[in-house]
Design a protein around this nucleic acid. Structure first.
Lengths: 261, 261
DNA sequence: ACCTGAACACCGTTCAAGT
DNA sequence: ACCTGAACACCGTTCAAGT
């Protein structure tokens, strides 16, 4: 209730809390707990066992400590998950053209930089891989404000790339949403499907075959089957790659049309 | 383990279970429990209190019954949520041109029907409104296979509309993903933001103002602010409507380009 | 400053028992 | 056929107490 940096009365995000992370003196027993260690262990557990099985008690056991020790470093489970979320967002490799802040504002088209289409495809591909690699990330992205430093750097880079397309500024948010939300939704489904198959102990291709066999005799799926055949692709991974590429092509073609028209 | 209609060993969806929903004789005390009643009460509770607060015990209390009675009609909480999910999917008004199955396959362009762009915008708008109206729906859509009858009808309608654009069949899945996942992601954020504001007791416009004030003095947000000003819009609702329209315009322009090029 | 143990108010679900 | 009560194995979090 002091500085006014908080945005609304109920706590909305770790990143808006006034109190900084507790610091420990540098020279202390190195086997002690630590915010960084806690978050790293959380990411490890989330990757290995999924969001549903992640609990403060499970985490504490992993750290060889009692459940309540963690609460010295973190206020709530939600805060911890927000920290884990932003930590993995740092794994995204940003296009170098999109990271310097001041230059881009003054000169939207620095000479010699790669085409904006390439940059956009790189960002989209990176984000997709991230979400598929960490399937627990999707629900958290939807749940929290996602305003940590790494998430912000990513959002800014995406915005710069979109401006580099030459699209008028008033259309940038809409076009950005189109691409960003597509990648998010697409990769979420992809990641969940993979996790589901792993849990069931079936390969993605086998599972896909089974689904196709299930709808084999049903005429109401004739159109879907025709579409699937037209697209082709021998493996699920291949089909996914094609659809993803077509969708990005479509968005990019749309951006070019809006820019020129 | 009998008919082969199940897709993998662990139960993946209510809709793939062999055993039909328990039936009660028609003439029985009308105040008894019922699958339909249970699902309806679930939807009511989910709308009122959100997914996080929804529990079997809470639901049972609402129905004036003990927690375990519900388990007579439903195997697990997950199954119940899947049923609730598909139930509200039925609220979507499908474009009449996209519901008859056989005609569309034979004649992709029946005379006198509305433009495919209009149909696509209607579907997108309907889905957006649904997700914003029921914010609990988004996480469930991500979590389950979403293959209930109403979800399937919606997916088929969307596919027909996309085919009506004249896009070659091999590009239909990609273009469909672009639009569908965009609407899903966009509406999810919109719905969560609304729910968050309601929980905090702040109007969306006030909250937005506060965020803008928070980043007022920070130069790293200069570009974001410039973009926001270029877009204009006096209220959050207005800005959202504009961005949504621009994104759809962009996707539609992209579809036209892929179709012609 | 950091960590523990016991306790509170919850969960989903199983299972034997009632009518 | 339908519903209940007690119980099991969990949760996140508070709080007083230890060192």
């Amino acid at each position: 209730m002091a500085t006014g940096s908080r945005v609304s009365s109920p706590r909305t995000s770790v990143w808006l809390s006034e109190r900084p992370a507790p610091r420990r003196k540098t020279d202390q027993q190195p086997d002690g707990l630590d915010r960084v260690k806690i978050v790293a262990a959380s990411v490890r557990l989330l990757d290995a066992e999924g969001l549903a099985k992640f609990s403060m008690r499970r985490l504490a056991a992993e750290l060889g400590v009692t459940a309540m020790s963690v609460y010295w470093y973190v206020d709530t489970k939600d805060d911890l998950l927000e920290l884990a979320l932003d930590t993995v967002m740092g794994e995204i490799a940003l296009p170098p053209e999109a990271v310097e802040p001041a230059a881009a504002l003054a000169h939207p088209f620095p000479a010699g930089q790669r085409d904006w289409r390439e940059q956009l495809r790189q960002l989209a591909g990176e984000y997709r891989k991230l979400i598929v690699r960490h399937p627990w990330l999707s629900p958290l992205t939807g749940e929290y404000l996602n305003i940590g430093p790494n998430a912000m750097a990513f959002a800014h880079a995406a915005m710069r790339v979109m401006r580099n397309s030459g699209l008028p500024d008033d259309k940038v948010p809409g076009a950005l949403s189109l691409v960003y939300q597509f990648v998010y939704g697409y990769s979420t489904i992809e990641g969940r499907f993979g996790a589901r198959c792993r849990a069931a102990g079936v390969s993605e291709d086998v599972f896909y075959r089974q689904v196709m066999d299930t709808i084999a005799g049903r005429p109401e799926f004739d159109e879907s089957r025709a579409i699937a055949e037209a697209r082709g692709g021998d493996t699920v991974a291949e089909m996914r790659a094609r659809d993803f590429a077509v969708a990005l092509d479509c968005a990019i073609a749309g951006i070019e049309a809006l820019r020129n028209g």
